[in-house]
């Protein structure tokens, strides 16, 4: 059983470059990790016998909506800049401790690393994050859309500035 702060110390000592810091989002505490380090950090977290985070509870992609909001003439808006985040909730079934990791990537180039090789269940979660907010996971075995149609080309629905297309495959979208 270790608290987030203790694990943060362990990680900070080992990967000082790649751990950005600890953020308080009550009631949770988040450890921010650099996008290109998430794979090695999570591989350490699952392999270290004292930590042993063997279960990825949930991996969620979200649009932080922290860019500059620009209003469009037709009433809609768009975010320029800002970040997309991927949040990892992990736990250890042996030591019963939990941890929240977060990776933030710029919206213009939303590339991070896949953790499928660490937790196999990340496969579909990452596909969903790609499908919904458009985060690209390098080294993912099969990064295609999952819930939306495979040929959906109107963007990523869970971004805050998503606009419905008028037509999909010749069909009017809001019927």
């Amino acid at each position: 059983m270790k608290t987030t702060e203790e694990i943060f110390e362990v990680l900070k000592n080992r990967y000082s470059e790649d751990i950005i810091g600890i953020t308080n989002m009550p009631p949770e505490k988040i450890i921010d990790v650099k996008p290109d380090a998430i794979f090695k950090v999570s591989a350490f977290l699952i392999n270290d016998p004292d930590l042993d985070f063997d279960n990825l509870m949930i991996l969620s992609g979200l649009d932080d909506a922290n860019g500059t909001k620009t209003n469009q003439p037709d009433g809609s808006f768009e975010f320029v800049g800002g970040t997309l985040s991927v949040v990892y909730h992990i736990e250890s079934t042996k030591h019963r401790h939990k941890l929240v990791l977060r990776v933030s990537v710029p919206k213009e180039n939303p590339v991070t690393e896949s953790v499928v090789k660490v937790w196999a269940c990340a496969d579909w979660h990452e596909r969903e994050a790609y499908d919904m907010v458009g985060v690209i996971f390098n080294n993912h075995p099969n990064l295609i859309r999952i819930l939306m149609p495979y040929d959906w080309d109107a963007g990523y629905p869970l971004r805050k500035d998503y606009k419905n297309p008028e037509f999909y495959q010749g069909m009017k979208v809001p019927y």
């Binding site: 989002m25 009631p27 509870m57």
Partner: peptide, 9 residues
């Protein structure tokens, strides 16, 4: 709620 996040199961 105030600004924050939670995961419950």
């Amino acid at each position: 709620p105030v600004e924050g996040q939670i995961y419950t199961r």
